[in-house]
Design a protein around this nucleic acid. Structure first.
Lengths: 154, 154
DNA sequence: CCTCGTACTTGATTGATTCCAGAAAGTAGT
DNA sequence: ACTACTTTCTGGAATCAATCAAGTACGAGG
């Protein structure tokens, strides 16, 4: 976990002023990967009670533009942010509970960048989202199914 | 292009009642792939002037649940719908103008389903979005760059 | 310490989507 | 074709994330 001085260095390195809201947002995003804006606002206010939601929105946009955080928005979900940037990794989303986990690229560094027919587009990024069930929901589903079967069977 | 009777058959096949709004929405989605809800509402009203936006939302949800249309929502865009379902194809989105085009799978039928480390998730679908510039915007950018260079050079 | 310019606060607003209750239309059996 | 029953549609209002606007406060450099 990076320290406050690390965050300050990151901000200065991106030509951004070091302000308390910005450090607090960076901290929150590092502490809770894949958190949505509301959760981030709540987390930020634990450190700094008087931050407006507008400030958090602004800071998140600035950090995203600077490349310090990455914005992800799976279908059906609000915007979420993560601090892991620079590497080309993807995400797996649980259809049941919505939890998100990181998935490293299966093939090489910038995978899938080769569409079979690119329609003349100049492609510079491929974004992959895997959909499925997380281990917890798989277990819950199996348990429910077993329980249902037991009840129906009895 | 399927006919009205085709749409009626599709609806009946999905255990959905055949109503004029539903046929109109199906027609609109087939006519304009990747259209957003507003465009669909407008297109539907060309055929059937008195349809409420609520009806279109409801119908789109019912059709999506029935698998007759597919909902796609690239980051930063509102929900869009397309009629091409059943095959596993992906999309390429222009960063400049937002236009969406279809891209067939590069590898096999259900590609990329093999994440390098699936974190214990039970994955059932991989969704790929390619980002880049469409041919039109590439040309516009080149033209602008050339013009800028000419001006700067002169 | 002081000034400048950017960042933050407050309050209002937009825009897509959903909820609700009553009205209307579709479907099945006779 | 008629009646009963079910599902959908209508119109208005509510919700929620996100953005806009104007004024104030704070960080950086001198």
């Amino acid at each position: 976990m990076p320290t406050v001085s690390d965050f300050e260095r990151m901000l200065r390195g991106a030509d951004l002023r070091v302000t308390r809201p910005r450090v607090a947002v960076l901290t929150a995003v590092h502490q809770r990967p894949h958190a949505d804006t509301d959760s981030i606002i709540a987390a930020v206010r634990e450190h700094l009670a008087t931050v407006s939601h507008q400030a958090v929105y602004d800071v998140l946009r600035a950090l995203t533009a600077a490349g310090l955080v990455r914005r992800i928005e799976p279908s059906g979900s609000v915007a979420r942010y993560e601090a892991r940037v620079g590497d080309n990794h993807h995400h797996v989303v649980c259809r049941s509970c919505g939890i998100i986990a990181d998935v490293d690229c299966a093939v090489g560094e910038t995978p899938c960048l080769t569409a079979s027919n690119d329609q003349g587009f100049r492609i510079d990024e491929a974004e992959v989202v895997y959909w499925g069930l997380c281990p917890v929901c798989v277990a819950a589903t199996s348990a429910t199914a077993a329980a249902t079967a037991a009840v129906e069977g009895g």
